[in-house]
Amino acid sequence: MLRKTYDWMMEKAAHRHAIWWLAFISFIESSFFPIPPDVMLIPLILAAPTRWFRIAMICTLSSVIGGFLGYAIGYYLMDSVGMAILGMLHLESKFEALRPLVDEYGVWVIIVKGATPIPYKLITITAGAFHFDLLKFSFASVIARGMRFMLIAVLLWKFGPPIRVFVETRLKLVMTGLVVLGIAGVAVLKFL
Rank of each mutant, 00 (worst) to 15 (best):
M57R: 12
G70S: 05
G66H: 01
K94N: 11
E11W: 12
S93I: 13
K158R: 12
V142M: 12
I183M: 12
E92H: 11
I118N: 09
E104R: 15
L61A: 06
T60K: 06
A187S: 10
I35M: 06
K190V: 11
L134K: 14
L173F: 12
L156G: 03
V142Y: 14
R170Q: 10
F32Y: 06
Y75T: 08
I19E: 11
A48Q: 14
F132M: 11
K121P: 03
L156F: 03
R16T: 10
I35L: 09
T169C: 10
T5I: 14
V174T: 08
H17R: 13
L101Q: 11
G114W: 07
A127M: 05
G67A: 06
M150P: 06
T60G: 02
H90V: 07
Y105C: 09
L189Y: 15
L178P: 03
V180K: 04
I125V: 06
V102T: 07
V165T: 14
V186P: 12
M1K: 07
V81Y: 07
F130E: 01
F166Y: 10
L69F: 11
W52R: 04
M1Y: 10
L134W: 15
L41E: 00
A18I: 00
I19D: 08
L69Y: 07
I28Q: 00
M1E: 08
S31Y: 09
V102N: 03
K4E: 09
M150T: 08
W157P: 00
I45R: 01
F137K: 03
A144W: 05
W21A: 02
R164E: 13
F24K: 05
G160R: 02
M78Y: 14
S62Y: 09
M78T: 03
I58A: 04
S62A: 11
G66L: 03
S138F: 15
M57W: 15
A97C: 06
D103S: 15
F33Y: 13
Y76N: 13
K172G: 15
Y71S: 02
W8Q: 06
G67S: 05
V102I: 14
L44N: 01
V186C: 11
M9H: 08
L155Y: 07
T169K: 15
A153R: 00
R164V: 07
R16W: 15
A56E: 00
A47Y: 07
